[in-house]
Each structure stands twice: as structure tokens, then as C-alpha cells.
């Protein structure tokens, strides 16, 4: 019963959050200067042409009226039609979503792998030069934003030692007939390793650029948490049982040290997803973020609204997953 209540409360707060986001976006993109209709018409269009289109898209009505019309469409699954691309927003957005999800998830996996390893190594060699080097590396990784890491990577692996693709998501020659837009997962599932290699070659640099700051945060937070856990009695007791330091860290300390870092990593992951907007642009990666920038340039109001709502939905889902993992990993909550 308590669980059901918690889920209901959660759904309600999610709905309220999304509604708030919708209101803010709706108002903000209408008060900033820039006319979507003017952008789509050729130069020299008459006032009458503009007025006709304004009416067709409903921009002649008050913001409040526009919002109620938009909202009544949304509750039926209709997010309107993109002005610049002339297709339903929901279709455009859902077609691009898999690309961004794949990029974010791969970046997260890289960050967890690198950051986790650094934290474990730093704990194993705590209070030595190795820990100092890890702290220094993490500090450096954090003082440079993800898109600058992107540029550094382009210089390294695109120019100096060109082993990875600089732009795009897949080489056109390899574009097998995908049934879904989850290219990476589908190629893996269909065991098309040639395609997989090509996809990874494209994804490597944007994913690593996104992963570096998060890896640094994970390294620092998890190492701190591990070091504190290493002083606890049950860890000492495990040591007296004859376990090597390495085993004591991974088996006794790690499962408990993960918990306090989990929430923060969840928050940082939403930042990473936000970072895809610029990174996708930088690497001409065909994802949601890249589309968002085009939408803003074109003042494509329905499309901007759709993308922002989707990002907001992803953020709430990430938080939900983090909360659920917290319960699953913590036996004290599991039984409550």
C-alpha cells in the first residue's frame, strides 16, 4: 500500500513538473524576439502571406489561448507540426530519441567504468602518489567542460592520429536496413560487427567527451566514500579473516560505498544528457540535441516545445531509476 501511494505521489509530481516546464518553455520562446513565420517564407513575401500563415499556426491568438490549444493536443498525443520540417513533432522527436539515448548510455557506461576504476585504484593506493595523481587527473578533467574535451579529442583522434570518425552517426555505405533507430543495440543484436565497429568509430569521441567530466566526479565521490567505509568495523573484521586488501575493497566496502554516490551520479547524468546538445552539434551527430539547435535557429516553436518536454521527461525518469536503484541496493530500504 505504501508502495502504491509512493508511486502515485511520484506520478503526480512528475505531471506537475512537466506541466511547469511546458508553461515556462511556452511563454519564454514566445516572448524572445524572432518570428518563426518570417524565417520560413522567402524574402519579399507580402504582409498578407505572413498574416495567413500566422493564423494557420495560431500565432495570432493570445499566449494563453495558444497554450490551451497546444495542451489539448498534447493530452491526445499530438504535439503539433514542426514549422521548419513540416512533419508531426512527435514523429520527428521519437525518431531522433534513440540516437541520443544510445550516446548518453554509452557515455554513462564509459564514465562509470573509468571513474569506478580510478576510485578503486585510488582507494587501494590511498595516501600515496598514485592517489595524488588520480586526484590531479580528476581535477583537470573537471576544470574543462565537455565540449572542449570534444575539441581536444578531435585534435588528437581526428587530426593528429585520425582513427575515429569526426562526424555523423554511421557511414552511409553501411546503413543496413535498420528496423529501429537504436542502431547500436540493433547491430549488436543482429551480430553485424562490421556495422557495430563503424557505429563505435563514430560514437567514440562524442561519448568520451561527455564521459570525461562524469568519470572525474565518480572517481572523486566514490573514492571519498570508499575511504570512509574502509575505516568501518566490518571492513577491519574482514581484513582479520585473511582477505587481501583488493578483495576487502571490492567486496566489503564497495557495495556500501556506492549508495551515497548513487544519487549524485544520477544528477550528474542528467547534466550529461544536457551536454549532448552541444556535443551532438560539434560532431554532427544526428540526435535530439542537434535537432534542438536547428529548431531554435529556425524559431520552430512546436518542435522546441516537444524536445524540451521530452528532455524534461527523460530527466524525471533518470531520477526515478536512481531512486529505485537506491532501494534495490539498500537492504534496509528493501524491507521497509
Amino acid at each position: 500500500m505504501a508502495l502504491l501511494r509512493a508511486i502515485l505521489v511520484r506520478l503526480l509530481t512528475t505531471a506537475i513538473t512537466l506541466f511547469g516546464v511546458a508553461v515556462i518553455v511556452f511563454v519564454v520562446i514566445r516572448v524572445v524576439p524572432g518570428n518563426p513565420i518570417a524565417m520560413m517564407l522567402p524574402p519579399g513575401a507580402t504582409e498578407a502571406d505572413i498574416a495567413r500563415l500566422q493564423m494557420q499556426y495560431g500565432f495570432d491568438k493570445s499566449i494563453f489561448e495558444q497554450f490551451t490549444i497546444w495542451l489539448s493536443g498534447v493530452v491526445q498525443g499530438d504535439f503539433g507540426t514542426s514549422i521548419s520540417l513540416r512533419q508531426p513533432v512527435s514523429l520527428l522527436v521519437l525518431n531522433r530519441l534513440p540516437a541520443t539515448l544510445e550516446l548518453s548510455i554509452v557515455a554513462l557506461l564509459i564514465a562509470v567504468l573509468i571513474g569506478g576504476t580510478m576510485a578503486l585504484v585510488g582507494t587501494r593506493f590511498r595516501d600515496t602518489g598514485a592517489e595524488g595523481a588520480i586526484d590531479m587527473g580528476a581535477g583537470m578533467a573537471l576544470s574543462i567542460p565537455d565540449f572542449l574535451w570534444g575539441l581536444v579529442l578531435i585534435l588528437l583522434f581526428g587530426v593528429l592520429w585520425p582513427v575515429f570518425h569526426i562526424s555523423g552517426r554511421i557511414s552511409p555505405s553501411l546503413d543496413i536496413d535498420f528496423t529501429t533507430n537504436f542502431y547500436l543495440f540493433e547491430a549488436l543484436f543482429r551480430l553485424r560487427f562490421d556495422v557495430l565497429a563503424d557505429l563505435i568509430g563514430h560514437m567514440f569521441m562524442p561519448a568520451v567527451a561527455l564521459a570525461i567530466p562524469l568519470a572525474a566526479i565518480i572517481a572523486q565521490l566514490l573514492k571519498q566514500s570508499l575511504k570512509e567505509t574502509m575505516h568501518l568495523d566490518y571492513v577491519t573484521l574482514a581484513r582479520t579473516k585473511g582477505y587481501a586488501e583488493r578483495t576487502v575493497i571490492t567486496r566489503e566496502a564497495l557495495p556500501n560505498a556506492i549508495l551515497p554516490t548513487l544519487t549524485l551520479v544520477g544528477v550528474q547524468f542528467t547534466f550529461l544528457i544536457g551536454g549532448t546538445v552541444i556535443i551532438e552539434r560539434l560532431f554532427s551527430y544526428e540526435g535530439l540535441g542537434n535537432m534542438a539547435i536547428d529548431a531554435v535557429i529556425n524559431r520552430d516553436l512546436p518542435l522546441i516545445q516537444g524536445i524540451v518536454i521530452l528532455f524534461a521527461l527523460i530527466f524525471t525518469l533518470v531520477n526515478l531509476v536512481v531512486d529505485m536503484m537506491y532501494v534495490v541496493l539498500n537492504p534496509r530500504l528493501r524491507h521497509a
Binding site: 568501518l232 568495523d233 566490518y234 579473516k241 585473511g242 582477505y243 566489503e252 556500501n256 541496493l329 537492504p331
Partner: peptide, 22 residues
């Protein structure tokens, strides 16, 4: 470490903190 692990054991002071909570 091996020798201690094979021959010696500890009964700790505080049972509330000496078992791994997870």
C-alpha cells in the same frame, strides 16, 4: 595476513557496526 586468517579470529567490541549491512 594468511597466517592470521587461518589461526586467529576477532570478536569485536560493537556488534552493530561489525557486520556488513548490505
Amino acid at each position: 595476513r594468511h597466517r592470521i586468517g587461518a589461526t586467529t579470529a576477532l570478536i569485536p567490541q560493537d556488534p552493530l557496526t561489525a557486520l556488513n549491512p548490505s
